[in-house]
């Protein structure tokens, strides 16, 4: 029996932050709180996933201001 397995990554935007300048690229873009997830798949169906990193991400350059889980939740709720 052949088992098709693999992985895929996804970027989940949790909350948009509105327009602000990015410290990396300098563009004024709509930044967001986002999580980058790794998903292991069997027959293209995700079996389990874990968060590789989370933080504030710029849609233009894709750079993160990496936050830990507590900081991420706190900043997202405060925003």
């Amino acid at each position: 029996m052949v088992i098709v397995y693999g992985y895929r990554n996804s970027l989940n935007v949790k909350k948009r932050m509105g327009m602000r300048p990015c410290p990396n690229c300098g563009y004024n873009t709509e930044q967001a709180f986002a999580e980058e997830k790794f998903k292991a798949t069997v027959f293209y169906i995700p079996i389990f996933s874990y968060t590789m990193r989370r933080g504030q991400v710029c849609p233009n350059c894709g750079m993160y201001r990496v936050l830990n889980r507590k900081e991420f939740k706190a900043e997202m709720n405060n925003y």
């Binding site: 970027l11 990396n24 690229c25 563009y27 980058e36 233009n60 350059c61 894709g62 750079m63």
Partner: peptide
């Protein structure tokens, strides 16, 4: 005009 490191290549976020 600008130079910076990027993870978004040709409009696509690259993992």
């Amino acid at each position: 005009a600008r130079v910076y490191r990027t993870n978004v290549i040709r409009g696509q976020y690259n993992y």
